[in-house]
Amino acid sequence: MRVLAALSGGVDSAVAAARAVDAGHDVVGVHMALSRSRAQHRNGSRGCCSIEDASDARRAADVLGIPYYVWDLSEEFEDTVVADFLSEYAAGRTPNPCVRCNQHIKFDALLDRGLALGFDAVATGHYARIVDVPDAEGGARRELHRAEDAAKDQSYVLAVMGADRLARSMFPLGDAASKDEVRAEAAERGLSVSVKPDSYDICFVADGDTQGFLRERLGAAPGEVVDADGDVVGEHDGAYAYTVGQRRGLGLNRPAADGKPRYVLEVDPAANRVVVGPSELLSVTEISAGEVTWLAEDVPAGEWTEVSVQVRAHGDPVPARVLLQDGRLFTELASPLRGIAPGQSIVVYQGSRVLGQGNIVKAGRGAALSRA
């Protein structure tokens, strides 16, 4: 197959491309330039897609002996991932930009361009597995599964890709036992990125100051911080800088009557108000989600299904049951979860298999969510 290998400049994508070459595919490397600042430099382990990353990707391609190109996707990235990030926070929700980047950039813009140029698939350094399961008609059903290495599993941020994108994707690192194994393999192949630190945090907020980034882009918008009874207990510079479950940086004028810590319970952008309260009010047992991407056509809609769900990229899965109905995903948790914020992704699993995902719209307790 003709395979387009996404080279980020890190060790994972380099080894993934190398494994695609070893498998006999005709591989071409491409680095996605996502920053509008061509002079952007990497800040330690923070950020990605910098000028250093592009150089590292080129060196990896040279070692592998594959053609290498840089594609400028900065406009698409700004108009989709960054714009979505800002609009979601402005609306009082908590987005995951890595999910949006995989959806709009790596498996929309990149794959679509690759297919238009005659490539058959895109290979990335994500830690996840693709399993082809034979069906009754003699064909195969393609499934997305967790990676062999649970500590590095990235299936959570890939669930949004959809069945059509999954059919054109390759994740050569899905069966890697550990990140140490991948680094050792990179060193054996002579790839200098074998010792490069992993990037973390939000790539376009390289200094890690998310609140500062939001304030710079959205501007100051002073308002009140109130308790669950509506009493004013503090002030804020912008409700968008708060997220459900947050404890630190609340800037409260006085402690709670019982002396216990208070947490953000709700962000109300319409009233420009942040509601805080005790931790017990954060616990929810029901979640409803929209913008559903469902990968499991063999799992019938309209019926409750026993599953596990994950609501954070590095969170633990919890037992639950879900109902897919009229394009919405309803979840009843076997035990309460805390700090569930609108805008987060909820990903549904059966064992290691990803069934689908949705964007959380509302969370509550008991019969708080209507399925009408």
Rank of each mutant, 00 (worst) to 15 (best):
D79P: 10
D79W: 11
D79A: 14
T80L: 01
T80K: 03
T80P: 02
T80H: 02
T80Y: 05
V81S: 01
V81R: 04
V81W: 03
V81A: 09
V81D: 01
V81H: 04
V81Y: 02
V82T: 11
V82F: 08
V82L: 00
V82N: 05
V82E: 02
A83S: 12
A83L: 09
A83D: 14
A83T: 10
A83N: 03
D84Y: 07
D84P: 01
F85Q: 02
F85N: 06
F85L: 10
F85A: 02
L86I: 03
S87P: 09
S87G: 06
E88W: 12
E88V: 13
E88N: 13
Y89P: 10
Y89E: 04
Y89L: 05
Y89C: 09
Y89S: 13
Y89V: 07
A90P: 08
A90E: 09
A91F: 13
A91V: 05
A91N: 13
A91T: 11
A91Y: 11
A91W: 07
A91I: 03
G92V: 02
G92D: 05
G92H: 07
G92C: 04
G92N: 08
G92L: 01
R93I: 04
R93Y: 01
R93N: 00
R93M: 02
R93A: 09
T94A: 11
T94N: 14
T94Y: 12
T94D: 15
P95M: 07
P95A: 05
P95R: 06
N96L: 07
N96S: 10
N96V: 11
N96A: 12
P97G: 08
P97W: 01
P97V: 01
P97F: 01
V99K: 03
V99Q: 02
V99E: 04
V99F: 06
C101P: 11
C101Q: 00
C101H: 05
C101A: 04
C101D: 03
N102M: 00
Q103T: 12
Q103M: 10
H104M: 15
I105K: 00
I105T: 03
I105P: 07
I105L: 10
I105E: 06
I105N: 00
K106A: 08
K106S: 06
K106Y: 08
F107R: 06
F107I: 00
F107D: 05
D108F: 11
D108Y: 11
D108S: 15
D108P: 09
D108K: 14
D108N: 15
D108V: 09
D108L: 15
A109W: 03
A109D: 06
A109L: 10
A109E: 10
A109C: 06
A109N: 01
L110P: 02
L110K: 00
L110H: 00
L110T: 05
L111W: 12
L111S: 08
L111R: 14
L111T: 15
L111M: 15
D112H: 14
D112Y: 12
D112P: 13
D112K: 14
D112V: 12
R113H: 14
R113L: 14
R113P: 03
R113A: 12
G114S: 05
L115T: 12
A116E: 09
A116G: 07
A116W: 02
A116M: 01
A116C: 00
L117N: 12
L117G: 08
